[in-house]
Design a protein around this nucleic acid. Structure first.
Length: 517
RNA sequence: GGCCCCAUCGUCUAGAGGCCUAGGACAUUGGAUUUUCAGUCCAAGAACUGGGGUUCGAAUCCCCAUGGGGUCACCA
């Protein structure tokens, strides 16, 4: 059931002040389908009912698209042949459509006030009967209607649901879905204050903008019946619908929601992401996991993820290429993305898998890009280094750097020798071992005399010395590492020493020796 | 509750009647390698919700049950 028209997809967010990761996945699928088919991707803003500052609430949304590199061909901030792309600016178009439906008898003015409707509904419920509108206003004579209107009686406009019909759609992911219209209330199209409802505005816009494929989350599946009726009433062919599965919290089938942060943070597959935000968020002036949580796209940008990693993970949530391929760059995803390979069941958002994909893309990133990526984090905490030094550092860090902000774990390369702290655990361990002070001092004098301060030479020097003294290398390395880096683990020790430099290493070792009295 | 959707390892998924003693990835566990960590390599454990059909043959088709989810607004 593909349309012969060139593909046009749209994503229509409301100005909520942040971009939800699940919404981003929906947007991504819309974008992918447009790009795969050489079609057009449209960003429309559903701000029909907005009190707040729309422009401000939109910024994080635009930003998320920009960061991920998902561009739109028409829409907000960009314009296009179907302008305006803000629903709040399209009321004239909706008004016109309403008038047409009214004139053609496909919609009606309902003068039943909310309390009456509510009572009808309650009665139906009490009688265990399905509620449908009683349509009293349909019985009104034109004179009576004119009278009511002249008196300023409020009314809503409802679609006159053809109760003898049924609606069948061929959903691109779910297949055939059918509804019986006989049990369906007449949906409100226009409120008594003259504003329009989402279901209506959305259909009018999709029709006007010649959208060919509506790709959206499964929660809208039920809306599709009304919307299809609306397309028909408007005399338009409905687009192809594709209802994609929810993104859920892993292990549950509940929608991933910003409201359940407290529950989410205890989900094992998500815990690390939350913890990381709590750990480094404050250092970077980003707040903590309450304000910057993994359900927001912003989290990933601020924490230093790569668009390639996020996009790869998003693509695998409810879609797969085949039985083996996991690692895919954007080009490959675009080339292979089809609607028929979208999965029907909900997809749990697994932070571990995301992390693994991210680690892969970080690992294949050229050093120069890593240098650039890491710099903003260093700037924020006031740590500095030349590009050259950073490059050497990052080469040494290698695949330990999973996200850019991980650079903050390597304070040994930025810290003053005088203030470098020694981790208490390895320090205590060393204290408990006899002769560790002597060992540190011996190492200090060994390192004092060497002229070639370079990783391979140091490696050789220390190994030879250890052998001479019949120490096991591990016994030597542990205190040395603690002395120069202040930590019990880290990058290759001799690489670290080269980076830190002879003077600093010696100074740090003597500070450690003092602590081992 | 009505209507609608969904149902394979802990998680993401492959699977469109025989290639399935169900494949891959993440995670987990064990081993190897390494000065630590990370990584890499090897290995292990781990699933078709249940019951009826249809068929020579069913994870795959049909029905029922069960479970989960969505939706029933003058929200989007």
């Amino acid at each position: 059931m593909t349309s012969p028209r060139p593909v046009r997809t749209r994503f229509a967010p409301s100005p909520t002040g942040y971009m939800h990761i699940g919404g981003m996945r929906t947007a991504f699928f819309c974008w992918l389908w447009a790009r795969h088919t050489g079609g057009t991707f449209i960003l429309r803003i559903d701000d029909t009912d907005q009190q707040r500052n729309v422009s401000e609430a939109l910024q994080p949304i635009f930003r998320a698209f920009q960061w991920l590199g998902l561009d739109w061909d028409e829409g907000a901030e960009k314009g296009g042949p179907y302008t305006p792309y803000y629903q709040s600016q399209r009321t004239g178009i909706y008004r016109e459509a309403i008038d047409r439906l009214l004139a053609e008898g496909k919609a009606f003015k309902d003068f039943d006030q909310p309390d009456v409707v509510q009572q009808d509904r309650a009665e139906a419920e009490a009688a265990k009967r399905n509620y449908v509108n009683i349509r009293r206003s349909l019985e009104l004579t034109p004179e009576k209607i004119a009278e009511l209107e002249a008196a300023g009686t409020p009314y809503v406009v409802r679609l006159l649901v053809p109760r003898d019909q049924s609606v069948t759609i061929h959903d691109a992911v779910r297949g055939e879905v059918t509804w019986d219209c006989g049990t369906m209330p007449d949906p409100v199209l226009m409120r008594s204050n003259g504003t329009f409802l989402y279901n209506f505005a959305s259909v009018v816009d999709d029709a006007a903008m010649e959208i060919t494929h509506v790709i959206r989350a499964e929660e809208h599946l039920t809306n599709t019946c009304v919307q299809t009726l609306l397309f028909r009433a408007l005399g338009c062919e409905p687009p192809v619908f594709a209802h994609i599965p929810f993104i859920t919290s892993p292990g549950s089938t509940k929608k991933l929601s910003k409201r359940d942060l407290d529950k989410l943070r205890n989900v094992p597959a998500l815990k690390k992401l939350f913890d990381r935000a709590d750990e480094i968020g404050p250092k970077l002036g980003l707040g903590d996991s309450k304000t910057l949580s993994p359900v927001m796209v912003e989290y990933y940008e601020k924490m230093g993820y790569l668009p390639a990693g996020i996009l790869n993970a998003l693509a695998r949530l409810g879609w797969s290429l085949d039985d083996k391929t996991e690692i895919m760059d954007l080009k490959m995803i675009v080339e292979n993305f089809t609607l028929d390979r979208i999965v029907k069941s909900s997809a749990g958002f697994d932070g571990d898998k995301l992390q693994a994909l991210q680690a892969h893309w970080m690992n294949v990133l050229p050093i120069s890009d890593k240098v650039a990526g890491v710099k903003p984090y260093l700037d924020k905490v006031g740590w500095g280094a030349t590009d050259e030094r950073l490059a050497a550092m990052l080469a040494g860090i290698g695949d330990r750097l999973k996200i850019f902000s991980d650079i903050l774990d390597y304070r040994e390369f930025f810290s003053d020798d005088e203030t470098l702290e020694f981790e208490s655990k390895p320090l205590e361990k060393l204290r408990s071992q006899a002769g560790s002070r002597e060992m540190v001092q011996a190492l200090q004098s060994l390192l004092q005399d060497t002229k070639s301060w370079q990783a391979t030479a140091l490696d050789q020097l220390v190994h030879q010395w250890a052998e001479q003294q019949s120490h096991k290398i591990g016994q030597v390395v542990a205190p040395l590492r603690l002395g120069v880096t202040g930590r019990g683990s880290g990058i290759g020790l001799f690489d670290a020493m080269e980076l830190i430099g002879q003077m600093s290493c010696l100074l740090r070792l003597s500070r450690l020796a003092e602590k081992l009295v």
